[in-house]
Design a protein around this nucleic acid. Structure first.
Length: 418
DNA sequence: TAGGCCATCTGGTCCT
DNA sequence: AGGACCAGATGGCCTA
């Protein structure tokens, strides 16, 4: 600090006496305020001392306090302008115009409106083009001019129009997607399994619908009672394992049987050994109620989440598994689940999650109605055996439309229960 | 926390 | 010019 002195409210740097003095300056533990003080007089210092050593020191100081120095330089510039009084009105206008554009670029709406305005090329406000060009020149003569269509200044009216246009487009897009989702919901109601609370994903709905159509076509083509296992396998081809479980559950098949015992014993139905003795026509599947899968426990997850690498498959030796190598299958591979556990898991949470139970009822009424001693668990009265959930009703009622539109439907049921 | 699914916004393209 | 359609981006929600 001995080499620095203060003159008035600003620090002064004495004439350097060679490198030693600079080192002396370097040992001064110059604080930020000192540097600022030095920077205050940088122009004067540069005028007074042309020593390259001083320049080196100052450059270092500049690098350390560059932001503040820049701010100071701006302050100096303002001071010069105020002193000279040479600020031109047209420059303010240019700045205003450019700032307007910058504001318009803030946010997606403004950005899109700007692009649309560029493409649309409204024919008003021609006088703004000059302002745009001048704004472009403001970048400096060194920079090349931007080519392409001139950017037209966004007047408030134009901005407003663009915003309205964009909002209308967004609303249309929302409506379009809602319609698409409604169609998907309708499709969910006519595929073999349906639940309002546990919807199939979009992609799984489309896959299942495709398989369903193929399966029905196959049945019509053969004209005979189909093999249930093969039928379910056809339905589940390319589906994720959770969806496979769901479909199998809807068809009241034991997944393990359907996956591992394809017609080995000639059985067409596994109902005698099915886990649905308590809920013969619907089963509850907890939505992955158990965090850890165990063979025999339910891991039904309609969201299609995959399982950890530590999962041990339950396919018995020599057992078959869904054709996940099929190019149709694009989802993640989830382990197969025995529906026995699905029922038990559902039981465990039956009392605590009454409102969250997920029931997947057989979409084929014939499968249930044809069984002696069991009444159809569907109906407006809600009288269903096994405490079937009322959510099963709407889909089935909705499916009436499907029945009307699909004559082979009853025939298909008849196939299974003759 | 990662991953899947979804809704929404947005810009581009095509068509009327 | 405006609407329909599409795909990418993004963020929220949910579950493992």
């Amino acid at each position: 600090m001995t080499n620095c002195f203060k003159l008035g409210d600003r620090w002064r740097v004495p004439l350097p006496q060679g490198e030693a003095s600079l080192c002396e300056c370097g040992r001064m533990s110059i604080t930020g305020s000192h540097v600022m003080a030095l920077a205050n007089d940088v122009p004067a210092i540069w005028a007074w001392h042309q020593s390259w050593l001083l320049a080196t020191m100052l450059s270092r100081l500049f690098s350390e306090v560059l932001p503040d120095v820049q701010r100071l330089a701006a302050d100096w510039a303002e001071d010069d302008e105020s002193e000279d009084g040479k600020v031109k009105d047209d420059e303010h206008e240019h700045e205003a115009g450019c700032h307007l554009e910058d504001d318009e670029l803030d946010g997606p709406l403004e950005g899109s409106s700007r692009t649309e305005s560029e493409m649309a090329g409204d024919d008003d406000d021609d006088e703004d083009d000059e302002a745009e060009e001048e704004c472009g020149d403001e970048n400096g003569g060194d920079k090349p001019k931007k080519r392409g269509p001139k950017k037209r200044k966004m007047t408030p009216a134009r901005v407003q129009r663009s915003k309205v246009r964009r909002m209308k487009a967004n609303a249309r897009e929302r409506t379009r997607m809602h319609d698409l989702n409604s169609a998907l919901d309708n499709l969910r109601k006519v595929v073999p399994c349906y639940s309002k609370t546990q919807k199939l994903s979009k992609i799984e709905t489309l896959r299942l619908a495709k398989n369903y159509i193929l399966a029905l076509g196959e049945i019509l083509r053969n004209g005979k009672r189909p093999d249930v296992v093969a039928y379910v396998q056809m339905l589940c081809k390319g589906l994720s394992q959770p969806t496979t479980n769901l479909v199998a559950g809807c068809l009241q098949l034991n997944t393990r049987n359907f996956l591992t015992e394809p017609c080995s014993d000639g059985a067409r139905f596994h109902m005698p050994s099915s886990p649905f003795s308590v809920h013969p026509y619907s089963y509850r599947c907890s939505r992955l109620s158990s965090p850890h899968y165990q063979p025999g426990s339910s891991a039904l997850n309609m969201r299609g989440h995959s399982y950890g690498a530590g999962y041990e498959g339950v396919y018995p030796p020599g057992g078959t598994s869904p054709d996940y190598s099929s190019p149709d299958y694009e989802g993640q591979h989830s382990p197969p689940v025995c529906l026995n556990g699905g029922l038990s898991a559902g039981r465990q949470q039956e009392s605590s999650e009454t409102d969250r139970n997920y029931h997947y009822s057989m979409h084929y009424s014939g499968l249930s109605t044809s069984r002696p001693g069991h009444s159809l668990p569907f109906g407006p009265s809600g009288a269903r055996s096994g405490g079937a959930h009322s959510e099963n009703i709407p889909p089935f009622q909705d499916a009436h439309l499907h029945h009307d539109r699909a004559p082979p439907y009853e025939d298909l049921n008849a196939f299974f229960h003759n």
